[in-house]
């Protein structure tokens, strides 16, 4: 009887592979020696406190900042593998508009506040060559319904939306091109608790329905437990622990991870 750890049971390569990712801000370490694999349909949570480097990791992945070192490889929908750090800007920007999505903590950073909700959702489609007004509007309506924004709001400006609605609109704007990978930075940050809950339910549902892969940065362990399959715990720019979400939260090994978990208040 052989005992094995087959390295893959379904797809045969990771969607995203990160090795030795590092970024310094002068003498300050943003993140150092970060590595992980992300497989299709998987959600990876990156948790830590302020200054842990979790947002730096996300910014390096999205290209918002240039990493100093490391390798980030991504498997595109057509099966080809690209090294993100060597990609030219045109290709990177195209990737961000098609196969990737980025959901910012503050919806204002990810939306056009001075055009209607429908235009916000339809923009990526038009950027990719959609030239039929009726059909673009139809897809926008579709997606607004999926993020539980009422049809009647399609022509309203995002400024008139509540924080939670703006966040849902940002999600719709990103998901309309059916990306394979979504990067999220504190998606529920700053929202009221009940609004957070609704948003989390929505995200869980969308991740399941669309088979999305996601990297979610959060300081909130409850969000991580709800959304992520796996966790990275970061501190001082380093990954101190990684593993299945429930294992890291229920049986943390590293002293800092234990401290983090035990610090969470239970209502």
């Amino acid at each position: 009887m052989t005992i094995e750890h087959p390295s893959a049971t379904v797809a045969d390569r990771p969607l995203l592979s990160v090795r030795g990712l590092g970024k310094r801000y002068g003498a300050q370490i943003g993140c150092r020696d970060v590595g992980f694999d992300l497989w299709p349909g998987e959600v990876l949570g990156v948790v830590g406190e302020s200054g842990s480097g979790k947002t730096t990791v996300l910014d390096c992945l999205s290209g918002r900042v240039a990493a100093d070192g490391g390798q980030v490889t991504y498997t595109k929908a057509d099966g080809s593998v690209v090294d993100l750090r060597r990609l030219d800007e045109a290709a990177r920007r195209r990737l961000l508009r098609t196969e990737w999505g980025v959901v910012h903590q503050h919806a204002r950073e990810g939306l056009r506040m001075n055009v209607s909700a429908g235009a916000n959702v339809g923009e990526r489609l038009m950027a990719l060559g959609a030239r039929h007004y009726g059909r673009v509007r139809g897809r926008a309506l579709d997606w607004l319904a999926r993020v539980e924004i009422g049809e009647s709001r399609i022509d309203d400006l995002p400024e008139t939306f509540s924080g939670g609605m703006q966040q849902r609109l940002q999600i719709a704007r990103n998901l309309v091109t059916e990306p394979r990978l979504v990067l999220m930075d504190e998606p529920t940050g700053g929202l009221d608790v009940s609004v957070q809950a609704r948003l989390l339910d929505l995200l869980r549902g969308l991740v399941e329905d669309l088979g999305l892969s996601a990297v979610i940065v959060t300081h909130d362990l409850a969000v991580a437990r709800l959304l992520a399959h796996r966790l990275l715990v970061m501190r001082g720019g380093l990954v101190v622990e990684s593993g299945l979400t429930d294992q890291v939260l229920d049986d943390p090994q590293h002293p800092y991870a234990q401290l983090l978990v035990s610090s969470v208040l239970q209502p």
Partner: peptide
């Protein structure tokens, strides 16, 4: 990257 110009037209039509 001219998608944004079509956003303008979309808004007008809306």
């Amino acid at each position: 990257e001219y998608g944004v110009m079509y956003v303008r037209l979309y808004e007008d039509i809306t």
